[in-house]
Design a protein around this nucleic acid. Structure first.
Lengths: 187, 187
DNA sequence: GGATTTCGCTACTAGAAGTATCGATACCGA
DNA sequence: TCGGTATCGATACTTCTAGTAGCGAAATCC
């Protein structure tokens, strides 16, 4: 039971801090080449690490991209005391801004495709990426889980569909329309 | 200039009519294995044709899947004299029903992913799959191109996002909510 | 029957995911 | 200072898949 409260570092060479470099290289490469042609070899080269190092940290290309998305999205920046309409607008514009960033939409769509045929990856995607936002929004909006999931489907689905069809982010006027449409859904 | 008006068949062995079998095999295989693992070899085997026959008709896997989607969606069944709200409801429920069919959502998401990094495929997708619906809806709804494209993004994007996240089609109650929400958008 | 085109089949190339191995390296504790 | 341990980079490898090339056989028209 000794040192049970001392979380001393495990022995051996510590991991070098290259996660950020790998994430940046991943988004950059996916942005430039698309999900399919963004090979792990190229990502590793651009990050300046060996491919084996990547596979030591993430079990598959899909898992790497998902981790990259989780890192890129981060927590929802909600203001204190905001109205429900304001919360909704902030959330939508935050999502739109993230998806506009280079590589994010392509990475998202790619993981999506892999997830449909891979329940384990779908679980990661749902748990690590969607659930944090769902929980925060249920609390901030006072809406049911079903209702919040519906909003997420509409917002993220719409933004991704536009990126997939046109290759460009949704124009500001259409994002405004999305905000208005969904705000009307608040009871 | 002779026989300029006689579109007689070109000589040589005619193509055997296996398109329907190939489309069925494609959707079945994609439904079972997902887009990535649905290889052209397997699709050809399940359709009972040689892989080379498939590549004689469609230039790439993405083009095959897109053709498959175009075939599966077909024309929008609009009633004569329907109101704009009825047209919208019909279109949404028609899209939801098609995306529910086995393999359609997985195929759609896969083509989407490939399209983001492949402008030629994106062009095929936009022209052959989206434009027919867009034109019919612009006419039937009397809305602008921008507006109709926005509706398509919302409806198809939402339905696909739900399929991707859960692996299941959207429940009837949520489809109803989608119909109501978008009908409110009609001016 | 001859010309033409598609068919199935086999073999092939190119490229990517993921694995195995090994010497070198960085940190910890004694 | 030195041994233990875990990571690093590098290389080579296996497996799988998209897509191509070339062949003889079959189907249709004239």
């Amino acid at each position: 039971m000794a040192r049970a409260t001392t979380p001393s570092r495990s022995p051996g060479r510590p991991r070098s801090s290259v996660d950020a470099a790998v994430f940046a290289a991943t988004l950059s490469t996916v942005h430039e080449l698309g999900y399919t042609r963004a090979t792990v070899d190229r990502i590793a080269a651009e990050a300046g690490v060996a491919k084996t190092t990547i596979y030591r940290r993430w079990p598959s290309k899909g898992a790497l991209i998902t981790a990259c998305l989780v890192d890129a999205f981060g927590p929802l920046p909600l203001k204190e005391g905001a109205s429900r309409a304001e919360v909704m607008e902030t959330a939508i514009r935050y999502g739109a801004a993230r998806i506009t960033e280079p590589g994010i939409a392509a990475a998202f769509a790619g993981v999506f495709t892999d997830a449909i045929g891979d329940p384990a990856l779908r679980e990661i995607l749902s748990t690590q990426l969607q659930d944090p936002y769902r929980l925060v929004l249920q609390e901030a909006l006072g809406e049911s889980e079903q209702r919040v999931l519906f909003f997420v489907d509409v917002v993220i689905g719409t933004l991704l569909h536009r990126m997939g069809m046109t290759g460009e982010p949704m124009a500001a006027a259409d994002v405004d329309a999305l905000v208005t449409m969904i705000q009307r859904e608040l009871t």
